[in-house]
Design a protein around this nucleic acid. Structure first.
Lengths: 236, 236
DNA sequence: TAGTGGTCTAGACCACGGG
DNA sequence: CCGTGGTCTAGACCACTAA
């Protein structure tokens, strides 16, 4: 709310998402925006660069900034987007079921993934995601208890990210994501509505706080035919 | 090239990749860097922000900028990285085989993907990528001939991206990438060394020029057990 | 308190595009 | 030519960290 450049980013991102600003239309020039927001050109440019990085606009030297004609529907699946945020952009109504929620010690495998000792207290959450009556995603989350003291079934049924960021004010900073395809396990078969495919798309997410501390490891296991990952990337 | 902030980015990216700067070590402060490069702090900050966006460093208010302890091996698979660039970072020696290279008209499906008419002249390139003696990736590329006049088998065996950027000076700007898992086709089976899996990971890439014109469509079809996609993402 | 990064300003010069 | 975005400057104030 405070940042001027972030307000410019939000203002135009919203207008582009709502279709108020049509694809290929031209934004005001940087000088005009600086006047409109009573700020300097460099501040305007920070806002416009955010829009460009996130695929909203294209800046062309000597001409101006233009709205990109990209489908905003399937879009921000890239980056650090949680299931709840993703589902909000879709037509179907998804259901989250909490299979288990337990406080325990890390153990061998998770300890190595979270780079802590095997006796580190952690939360383990297992959830399934159902769309159109079919359980198609199995989400397994491990959190450091030292970062998240309380966790309830109600929070897990909603969005854990929202709880951490909005309610707890825990600053999530960055994440590394690894996508592979692996053999389905017995757990996958028992908790998901698998069709004939014996393969599962596994998205491993290593989530870090602002001080770069690794605090969460997530495995999101998707039925292959329902998996879709979209990414927007700029050169340099 | 001459950009000061880009030089700062390259200098430190290289030092971090080479291990000259160890993980968790502290970079000089922004004021010190401004002096060292005889430039202003805002310019230094642009370089540091590039490093942060690409996962090299973490900036902490009141403390400084620190090298992130992230495996740089499997890393820049994110973004607009071509097979050649990717392979250069791996131990194995990959082989590219050009299956076909032809000039033709777009036709129905490709015309809709490239958003041109079906009579638009295009290049179609089909290549297989072999590692450790197994053909594991099938790459199918379509280019607008209006953007790329000449294309030879030799160029396709090397890196098309390198040819476009370095030799032709065609400015690639951004790309949208969609990853899905689909049934293997007969073409997949005949050109790749598939194991029992009947599924193929399909990475569709829509590549745009600086004026936002869509000029290339690529389908990269991977054997599931050899597929791996890594992504680094920052919140906001 | 001193040093750090985060934001912002009010200029400047440049390269590019189109009339 | 003028307007555009790209780069850069030399300051400023703030919030945060650590001694």
């Amino acid at each position: 709310m405070d940042n001027i450049y972030y307000k410019i980013y939000r203002d135009y991102a919203k207008q582009i998402q709502n279709g108020i600003l049509r694809p290929h239309s031209k934004l005001p020039s940087e000088n005009e925006l600086a006047e409109a927001y009573t700020t300097s050109r460099e501040t305007v440019r920070k806002g416009l660069n955010l829009l460009a990085q996130n695929g909203y606009i294209q800046k062309v030297k000597g001409k101006g900034s233009f709205v990109l004609p990209i489908d905003r529907f399937d879009f921000p699946v890239s980056g650090l987007v949680s299931f709840k945020e993703l589902a909000a952009k879709m037509r179907e109504s998804p259901v989250t079921r909490v299979v288990s929620l337990e406080a325990s010690l890390a153990g061998e495998e998770i300890a190595s993934r979270l780079k802590v000792g095997p006796d580190e207290p952690i939360w383990k959450v297992v959830r399934t995601r159902t769309m159109d009556g079919e359980a198609i995603i199995l989400d397994k989350d491990w959190f450091l208890q030292s970062c998240v003291p309380d966790l309830t079934k109600e929070i897990c049924e909603d969005s854990i990210y929202q709880y951490l960021e909005k309610t707890m004010d825990i600053p999530i900073s960055f994440a590394k994501k690894v996508i592979t395809v692996e053999e389905a396990t017995e757990e996958d078969s028992s908790l998901l509505d698998l069709t004939r495919h014996e393969l599962i798309v596994v998205v491993r997410n290593y989530v870090h706080l602002e001080d770069a501390q690794l605090f969460q490891y997530t495995e999101s296991r998707h039925r292959p035919d329902k998996f879709r990952f979209v990414d927007f990337a700029r050169r340099q």
